[in-house]
Every structure is written in structure tokens, then in C-alpha cells.
Design a protein around this nucleic acid. Sequence first.
RNA 1: GUGGCUAUAGUUUAACGGUAGAACAGCGGGUUGUGGUCCCGCUGGCCUGGGUUCAACUCCCAGUAGCCACCCCA
Length: 460
Amino acid sequence: MTKKEVKKKTFQLIKGMKDILPAEQKYWEYIISEVKKIARQYGFERIDIPVVEATDLFSRSVGQATDIVEKEMYSFVDKGNENISLRPEFTAGIMRAYIEHGMLDLPQPIKVYTIGPCFRYDKPQAGRYRQFHQFNFEIIGEEDPVCDAQIIQIAYKINCVIGLEVNVQINSVGCPICRPDYEQVLKEYFKKHRSKLSEVSQKRLAKNTLRILDSKEEQDQSFIEEAPQQVDYLCEECRNHFIRVLEYLDELEVPYILNPTIVRGLDYYTRTIFEVTPVEVSDSDKEQSRQTALGGGGRYDGLIELLGGRSTPSLGFASGIERLILQIKEKNIKIPTPPSCDILLTQLGEDARKKALVLFEELTKAGFKVREAFSKNGLKPQLEIANRLGVKLALILGQKEMIDGTIMIRDMDGGIQEIVDYQKVIPEIKKRLEKLAIVNIKLDNKNKSMHPASEVPDKE
RNA sequence: GUGGCUAUAGUUUAACGGUAGAACAGCGGGUUGUGGUCCCGCUGGCCUGGGUUCAACUCCCAGUAGCCACCCCA
């Protein structure tokens, strides 16, 4: 206990934050590349907006009384005395950009997507971080239900492409014309059963009746099941809209579940709302009703007007990347591994190292996937690296080769090595790699015919 | 915000009221310029603070952090 040295303080991740280490990156690259691919296919263009916005933007759009705004926002006053917040979601910022840049003068609808971090001061949990990442799709300036169907289809399809089995739960919350009527009906219904409801629900009865439908309390369930449903109280227009959305989804063969109990936590929704949840295959864990939505969205026709723009219908959805990755891992879904490198360039001695530096540039320029180990001296450690990387060929450039004007090519699988004229390295490597590639294709084909189910999606 | 569980090397972990072992990884060797196997060595650890005790990594309390559930959400 006589340690004189005081341990230096080390730093730690801020609560709710996460490092995405190199080993994790393949998941991110995979999901992001699939998202980009889908976006391209459906004609969505990328938009990127700042992580900070005026706090008011969120309180006005997401809703003053929502949990997100009430207690989950990273808000602060900056040095210029502005009230700003880290974005808890994308939609508000995108709508701000739409209004600010006069995008309503562009051909409508505007279809944009974005990917990036969002922030909520939640208590961290499985698949929930304070900094988390979403991708977000928006269609602005179109009221037609076909857009609702398309957005839902995209949300669904991304999961399919990734290999996740999901349910789409859908509902309609009506519009400012018909919703109040429904809320009234619902309130009266629950009032009749007030005493039998859970405490939380009793509180909600006064504040936000719709939220009772969200209750997870056992004692509320039977009342929720029997409760009048929004769908039955939609106005003519909303009902037609909803029916058409469902028709289009049928046409697209997107399986959906009508779920009158989903009520999204953001105030701005109108008409269509939906959630994407993982299909629970294993009953072993019963999933403990872990309702981790993988994504969600809907329509918000009043939002732009609410933010001071000209009344413009819009809709969209967002998915949580961390949650998708969690699912991928849980369900043991294979994802394509990033392309490995083919060649390791080794060198022995100072002269060879200098020459190798140049050769490395040439090989890279010639398009080879090549790695180096310039900082290592012996051949042994360099070949160890070659082995770890799983390269097919190692190039050995040492004193001998320098004198002879040659270079050694070592086949890492067979251990066979050949000395070739330094001037001919590039064509020689090419020849060998092509030969190996043919062998691999043959092997692949054999594997495919044996396990047709284990197909790996194409890399980008 | 409420509740539960946990805290030993980079990672996964073992044991014990008398201050810690292993596996994997990392680094270095097994003669001069040859990897994957094998053998050997090295590096590296008891979350913090109190209490009980002759003695605490071990027991108790608090703090902190992590994980998880509720709430809510992505």
C-alpha cells in the first residue's frame, strides 16, 4: 500500500454514449449502404441538417407536453444567449430547412433522407443510448395515400433487405377535425371504468386520454381491448385516406397489422401512423413484451404550417440503427464482411524499405488491395501480419532482391514462392490473383448449390 | 423519475477473511530473410470511500459506473 505514484485519472464514456469500435463498423457500413441503396431506388435525395437547432423548433413541433421535450432534450444556452438543443429527432429540422430554403417552389413532392446522430437524455438501456443514430425518410408536399404506402413499404423493405423479420403495425389517428370527437368518446368510455383503471391511466384520463391506449398495466388491458377505436370515428376524408393506404399496402404485399393501440409519442402526427417491430420467434424468453420499436413514423400534415410555413402535407419515418444492429446480432444474421486485402508488401533492410514505399504507391494506383508493415523489421513479424490479414499473396523485397532487381511472390495458402523480375511485378500479381479468384468462384458455386439458402446479399 | 442485478488484466473469467490464478488477445523468443500449429517468456488486474477485523479483493454500508426492467421511445 506504499504506492507513491498517484494513479492518473482516466476518462470514461459519458453516460449513454457509445464508441463504435472498428470491430463494429461492418454493421454500420452494411446498414448505411443498404439504406443509401434503397433511398436511391426510390428517388430520395440526401439532406444533412445540423445537430443543433433552436429549442423552440422542437417544443413547437414535437409537442410541449411530450416526454421528449419535457425531460429528454439536451438543451442549453449558448454564449450568444440562444436557447438551443441537440436534435432529438430529424423531422423538425428537415421541415425547418424545407421552409427556410423555399423548397416549396421545387417540384413537389420533395423526397429526402438523412442519417446521423440524435440525442435524448433518457436512461440508457438495451438498444437505447443518449446519443443514438437514425436514418430518416421524408416525403414533403404530397397528400396522396400512395405516399403513405410507399413510406411504409420502404421502412418495411429496409428491414427485409437486412434480413430482419418485422411486423408493421398501423393505425390512423385522424385529423384535427375528427380526432377531438374520438377523444371525447374515448374519455367518456374510460370515465365509466375510472375506478378500475391503473393509477397512471387515471392520471392520463384528464391530461391525455389517448395515452391510456399505450398502457402496459395488466389491469387496463381488458378495457383497452374493448375501447372504442379511432378507426371507427374517422371523418369521411380520413377514413378514405386510410382505406386507400391499406389497399396500396395490399397491392405491394406489405404485411401489416392493424393496431388501434399504437399512439405515437410525438404530437404532430395526423392520419397514418405506424411502427415497425421485430417478429418474436423465440417464445423462450417471451420477449418480456420488450416493445423495442425498430422504427416508426407517419403523416404530419399540419407540421409545416405549425412551424410557420405554408400549409403543406408531409410524412416520414425513422429507424434506430443501434436497434437494428442489436436485432441483427440477436437473430444471428450474417452480414457481408468488408472486402479484405489481397497482398501484403514486406521489406527487409533500409534500401528495400525505401523501394517498398514507392512500390506500395504503385500497387495502390494499379488498384490492388494491398497492405504494408513498414514499421516492422524482421520478415517473421511481417508474415504474421500477412497471416492475420488473410492475404493471398505476400511480396518480399529484401537485400537479395534489391541486388538482382527482382521480387519474391509468396502464395500464402500453399507456401510456394517464386522470384520474378521486379519490372513485371504488377502483371505477375494480377495473373496470380486472377487464378485464385477463379478457384474461389468455383468454390462459391459449389457452396451455393449445396446451401442455396445461405446467400449473402450483394456488397455495394 | 422508480425498481432489480452486477463490478477481479484489453476481453472472458477462477479462487480465497491472510493482498490473486487461467484462457484468449498483445509483445518477445525457439540462432542469421519466412506466417498459420507447437513450446517458452514478458506485459497487465481486485471501481472509489468508509466500517467490521490482528488482517478485507473477499463481509457490511455508502458512492460511482455498467447492465436490465418499468415509464417513454428509435
